[in-house]
Write a protein that binds this DNA or RNA. Structure first.
Lengths: 184, 184
DNA sequence: ACCTGAACACCGTTCAAGT
DNA sequence: ACCTGAACACCGTTCAAGT
């Protein structure tokens, strides 16, 4: 006979930072950022809220930082884009989509003064620009301009909701062309 | 002898939505959004927290909506700008400055699905563009592009803080030129 | 009409204790 | 090592009561 695990641990994967972030994201996407509480998160993980502190000693602060890192630290994956401008366009489209998939995290992305999440993102964007032959100084400006536009536009979209009669995807693409025309 | 007012009302202007918003803004600017609580707000106004509900029946929700309206609903005041592109530039610079003055409100501006605050802002921006001769359809795109850029860049700046070694004002201006070049 | 005081259901977090 | 349970200081908000 195999030893029976304790009642509490039965049928339940061990807690991990990964699983905690995942569950938190699910709560935010489904119910909104305001309903993300340590107690509710514990419930979702079938654990007492206090167990979370064992994996995230800095508590909710660390949780929010982790969420920002998870959502905003996009790798500039532009495999198979034909040419440099196409790469930028692909990058911007993908990044916008990712932000909107987790629109509830946007206020955190916008104002958490925390990890190097966005620093990393803008670095890889700068790299992309330099590969296209844009000189260093212009690349810095262009990277921030593009990143600012994508984040800001995503924020506008999230604010407006789905019921504004605007084709946001088309509008984003049009504005992107406009910005890219300036970058060129 | 003049009637003495009650102890509670002594030396204290009567509460008003204006004064409440003002005090809330002061708390946010000085201590951060996270420290804005109804109780602390009451203290700042020398009143019990519950008195606030008499002026803002929807409570904290209404307070946050009011803050967004106060900060984000900028009148496109471009008096004395030489020409149309100068007007746009002035508008963008002023709006950025206003957002950064109350950077603590940015997460609310970004994601409150509430009043027509930003709708009004983008409307007046569209007006400015049409006056410059930009056709209606292009004006809509340009307005959102510009607004997205300004908000997004302000968010990047607020995130980075003052200690990043970047001249944010110059970078904003450079990016703005880049965007305006596309709008033209 | 305007404000207070007590109360309620909920937070994040600490800390000692269990296994 | 990992999780629990009780406790603490704080939330937003309701509601009856005061003036």
């Amino acid at each position: 006979m195999v030893r029976q695990p304790s009642v509490n641990a039965r049928d339940r994967a061990p807690l991990s930072t990964e699983r905690i972030i995942e569950a938190a994201l699910q709560i935010i996407d489904g119910q909104g950022l305001g309903r993300l509480t340590m107690r509710r998160l514990g419930d979702a993980l079938e654990v007492e809220a206090m167990a979370i502190y064992h994996h995230l000693p800095r508590g909710k602060e660390q949780l929010l930082d982790g969420l920002v890192a998870h959502v905003a630290a996009a790798p500039a994956d532009t495999r198979g884009a034909a040419g440099w401008r196409a790469s930028l366009r692909t990058w911007a489209r993908d990044y916008r989509e990712r932000l909107l998939e987790h629109a509830g995290v946007l206020p955190l992305v916008v104002t958490r003064r925390n990890p190097a999440a966005l620093t990393e993102t803008s670095r890889s964007l700068r790299e992309l620009l330099r590969q296209g032959g844009v000189p260093e100084e212009r690349a810095e400006v262009a990277a921030h301009t593009l990143l600012g536009y994508v984040i800001g536009h995503a924020a506008l979209e999230a604010r407006a909701g789905d019921d504004s009669g605007v084709d946001w995807e088309a509008r984003f693409a049009a504005g992107l062309d406009l910005v890219l025309a300036g970058v060129l």
